[in-house]
Simulated scan of single mutants.
Amino acid sequence: MKIIDWYILKRFLVTFFFTLLILIPIAIAIDIAEKIDNFLENPDLGFYQVVDEYYKNFIIYYANTFMPLALFIAVILFTSKLSNNTEIIAITNAKVSFTRFLYPYFIGATLVTLLSLVMNHFVVPESSKVRKAFELEYIKKNRKNEMRFVTDFSLQLTDTTYIYIRNFNTESNSGYDFTSEVYDGLKLKSKLVSDNFRYNVKDSNFVLLNWRLRVIDNKKDSISSGSKIDTVFNFTPKDLIYKSALSQEMPSGELYDFIELSRKRGVKNLNTYLVEFHKRTSLPLASYILTIIAVALAFRKRRGGTGINLAIGIGMMFIYVFFLKISEVLGAVAGVNSLLYVWVPNILFGCIAIYLYLNARK
């Protein structure tokens, strides 16, 4: 790398982290103003616990969320400054092409992309578990009661076995109105019903209370019942909790395994989980697209200077976020290609980036 490359790369990274450090305290200040009453309502909640369990993970989440915005603003700011100081004119007079000029930008975008990928796939999900557990305990107490119970739950265990649960308490590992049905094609072969049941963690089995079993045969049906029976099923309470937990709390490996397991069990709509899984890769890779757009906008000196470039850039960034949110909602609808919808904002802005790149080369 040449001296000018190191100069641009250093300015790129310094401005990026400086912009990020400006945005995060603003988010913290707004959040404190909104939640200060909740903190004061809990006298046993100490300052260290709030910082360690909540705001440390709050910073991790929002630092990752603000990365594309901070990158975009940073590139526009220091590139506009290079342009206003006629430094870019000196670079172009030295026969440096626009493509060659982008090299240090792409190195910086690559570093940000790698950091964002690691954050999205591994760090943020683990951090979100702690932050959301804190929120359920001290801020969203009503939501905690909702998360405690799983209601009207159905699951396909194998190609022939289905279970239905009316209500299940994830804290006590107990529930009521349990049904297990075994089919041969469309024909019901057996049906097991239990008024109450609980999961035995020590033995990894289920205890069914007041159970009734009907086995259907072509010649003669048989019915048996009892007050208590121990049995084993191909699921655990963890599978029930997943249905009520947020996909953002699962690391990518765990999320992928859950999606594959759910597919085998015949769960029809997994697009909410697929959107989250694909977004963890598509959003970091958008750094390259946003970098090209930002450089192309700020490459030439404009009347109005940095202000007009920043206004155009922030406007485009909000449009990108708007398309991103729309694509997430549409991608979660059953029957659509979630991967395509997640990548639609990148495809659209990628076309804009190509147009601006070709125009800037001239």
Results as ranks from 00 to 15, higher is better:
193 V>H: 10
215 V>H: 08
245 A>I: 09
226 G>D: 10
89 I>P: 01
32 I>Y: 15
64 N>F: 14
270 L>D: 03
253 G>A: 05
279 K>Y: 07
187 K>Y: 11
317 M>D: 08
360 A>S: 04
360 A>L: 00
156 Q>S: 14
34 E>T: 14
56 K>Y: 15
125 P>M: 10
177 D>P: 06
297 L>P: 00
23 L>K: 04
355 Y>E: 03
231 T>F: 02
16 F>R: 01
312 I>E: 06
166 R>N: 14
106 F>Y: 03
37 D>E: 15
156 Q>F: 10
100 R>G: 01
240 L>V: 03
297 L>T: 02
321 V>W: 14
230 D>V: 08
331 G>Q: 02
164 Y>M: 11
95 K>H: 10
356 L>C: 06
219 K>Q: 13
239 D>I: 09
118 V>R: 05
125 P>Q: 07
224 S>I: 13
343 W>H: 11
87 E>F: 02
93 N>V: 06
215 V>Y: 07
57 N>Y: 15
300 R>Y: 12
328 E>M: 10
54 Y>K: 11
197 F>K: 01
185 G>S: 05
169 N>W: 06
52 D>N: 15
210 N>H: 12
109 A>P: 00
313 G>R: 02
29 A>V: 15
312 I>A: 11
159 D>P: 06
269 N>C: 08
63 A>P: 09
7 Y>S: 01
46 G>S: 14
27 A>R: 06
85 N>Y: 03
61 Y>N: 15
117 L>K: 05
71 L>T: 02
12 F>Q: 07
130 V>I: 15
125 P>D: 09
226 G>V: 12
318 F>T: 09
322 F>E: 04
12 F>P: 05
31 D>V: 12
256 Y>F: 13
118 V>S: 10
101 F>Y: 07
314 I>K: 07
67 M>Y: 09
298 A>S: 09
160 T>F: 08
274 L>F: 00
98 F>H: 00
324 L>H: 05
138 Y>G: 02
288 Y>P: 01
117 L>Q: 05
200 N>F: 03
179 T>E: 14
17 F>K: 04
151 T>G: 08
227 S>E: 14
315 G>C: 07
249 E>Y: 06
357 Y>S: 03
280 R>M: 03
75 V>S: 02
149 F>C: 06
4 I>T: 11
351 C>N: 07
224 S>C: 08
76 I>F: 03
253 G>E: 03
179 T>L: 12
94 A>P: 00
211 W>S: 01
171 E>V: 13
134 F>L: 11
